[in-house]
Design a protein around this nucleic acid. Structure first.
Lengths: 154, 154
DNA sequence: CTTGACCTTCCCATCATTGGAACCCTTATT
DNA sequence: AATAAGGGTTCCAATGATGGGAAGGTCAAG
């Protein structure tokens, strides 16, 4: 199986397969005499595992941890569970953050006529608000997004 | 007002102020003879506007659109409202996506003992699932994250 | 007149992913 | 056998928003 077939079989693009190899997430596969990468069924399983965890929003580093645990027959299921639930926490934090933004925006938009006239409370608030309704956070400047790695490209 | 004071007054870091200038989001300010940037109260208002929209998760490009509308006295409030509600839609789509990930993960974690033994249905599912529960999406390969620009760093 | 805190520009790193150029290999058709 | 199409290979660059840091200039207080 060459890289194109592996990509089709796993749903991970050839580009990303090479990238995962480069950063050490997967082992360099065998090569043909011409230098083509050759993937086994086992490799495809790994790629499928990676795609699934990635679809769940795990950062590549965490995927590496999960791969290690997968191959560690003496793992403690508690370790896996902790990674999973930590990620659930992160997802929920992110959701709350987005929820807060959406609530504020909906609130602002509520009083906007949305017609041809220039009067617009949304712009007014953005321009003059001492603090936007959403800004009830305690820390002085807890930048909107404190989370990374929820995967950007698709 | 030099860049440090402007940063303190607006909550936008000096680094970002220079960056916003570089990408054309804000106009190059006046300079002292020594080359220091000098900001007016008006400039600070703009930076505050930017910070607020940024805190609401708008991409820099949209912030540019909003700045233009802000300064356009003949704007239609409908234009502002559309940008706002489009963004609410995007936020909600993103939230649903994260919700789906979290639901799947919680479901997987539910049946995991989370003790010292290696048996782990989370790993099992990730390794062997034909399709994970969350993968009930219609399109053949709608990569997890179809949204960008929800601001990564803080 | 020195010290320290600021400013300037420039480059680099992040994270996951895509795009493209330049070049080599394989396969199928003429 | 020659050729064209469609892969593979490597390397480099860009994305978006941000932080980090180096090298060097400037300003204000001591």
């Amino acid at each position: 199986m060459n890289i194109g077939e592996a990509a089709a079989a796993s749903g991970v693009s050839a580009k990303m397969i090479r990238y995962y190899e480069q950063i050490g997430l997967i082992k360099p596969p065998a090569r043909t005499e011409a230098g083509y990468r050759v993937y086994s069924d086992n490799d495809i399983s790994t790629l499928l595992f990676i795609r699934r965890t990635r679809d769940l929003g795990f950062a590549v580093e965490k995927i590496g941890d999960l791969l290690t645990l997968w191959h560690d027959r003496s793992r403690a299921s508690a370790d896996v569970k902790r990674i999973a639930l930590d990620h659930v926490d992160a997802l929920e934090r992110k959701m709350r953050e987005l929820q807060s933004m959406a609530d504020t925006l909906r609130h602002l938009a509520q009083n906007c006529h949305g017609d041809g006239r220039p009067d617009c409370p949304i712009i007014e608030e953005l321009a003059h608000a001492e603090a936007l309704p959403s800004c009830h956070a305690p820390a002085p400047r807890p930048r909107a997004d404190s989370l990374q790695n929820f995967r950007k490209h698709g």
